[in-house]
Amino acid sequence: MRVAVRQRLGAFRLDVAFEGPEDGVTVLFGPSGAGKSATLAVVAGLTRPDEGVVAVGERMLTDTAAGVFVPAERRRIGVVHQDARLFPHLSVERNLAYGWSRAKGERRIGWDAVVDVLAIRPLLGRSPRDLSGGERQRVALGRAMLSQPTLLLLDEPVSALDAARRGEVLGFVAELKRRFAMPMLYVTHSADEARTVGDHLVRIEAGRVVGEGAPGVMLPVDDVVGEVVAPGLVRVAEDWAVGRSVWVRLEG
C-alpha cells in the first residue's frame, strides 16, 4: 500500500506520504483533527486529492498526474467506521449480502468462514436496530470482509465501545487479519490499540506524517503509565484478548 497525497480542505492542509506492508496492519496514529480520517477517505476513493497517488499492491487507484481515479465502488476497499453504518432497512443477513452479492466473480473470502470467525451466525435474522454496539461492529466487519476487499480500512472501529467490548472486537480484528491475510489501515488515537493491532505505525499530526516505525518502538509502553479512572483508581493496562482491565488502587 502506497499513499502520497496533498489536499486542501478549507484552512486545513493534508500532505501525507507513507507506505504500509501488504500483509499486515498499518496504524495511522495521531490526535483528533490530525487528518487521519481525511487520509482514509482519500484511500477509499470517497474524496479526490488535489494531487498524489494511492496504490494497493500493484493496483494504481489514484494518480492525479496520470489522470487515474478509480471510483470507490470499484476499488474493492472495505471500510468500517466507529458508527457501524449498517443499513437500517435490511436484516443483518442482507447487510452482509450487500457487498457479497456485488462481488460475485471474485470471491476468495467465504461466507461461512467470515460468519463463523466473527460469531455472527445467531444474529443473521435480526435487524441492526436490535444489536448491541459490539455486535454492530462485528456485523460491519463481516459486511466489509464479504465484499471481498483487497484492503480493509478501519476508522476508530472500537472507539464507541466500552472497554470490554473494545477488547473483544479487537480480538476479532486480529483473527480476521490472521485468517484471511488481509492488509489493513487502522486509524486510532489510542496508543493501546495501536500497540495491540499494529504491525507498522504512521504518526500523523496537523496533516503531516511526523514519524514511522514499529508500534512498540514508536509508542513505548512506559510512555503511558495509566489512565486515572477515578480518584485513587488508575487503570494501568488492558488485556485485549480477554477484554479485562488491570486496575491499581492507590492508597495512602
Binding site: 477509499a44 470517497l46 471510483p71 470507490a72 465502488e73 470499484r74 476499488r75 474493492r76 476497499i77 472495505g78 471500510v79 467506521h81 458508527d83 453504518r85 443499513f87 437500517p88 432497512h89 450487500y98 457487498g99 456485488r102 462481488a103 459486511r143 466489509a144 465484499s147
Partner: peptide, 27 residues
C-alpha cells in the same frame, strides 16, 4: 437519508443507480 449510508454502500461496490434503488429510495 444519511449520506454516510450511501458512502457505505459505495464502498461495498454499489454504483450511483444501484445506491438510489437499494438504499436511498427504500429509506
Amino acid at each position: 437519508v444519511d449520506p454516510k449510508l450511501e458512502e457505505a454502500a459505495q464502498s461495498l461496490g454499489a454504483g450511483a443507480w444501484d445506491r438510489a434503488v437499494t438504499i436511498v429510495l427504500p429509506l
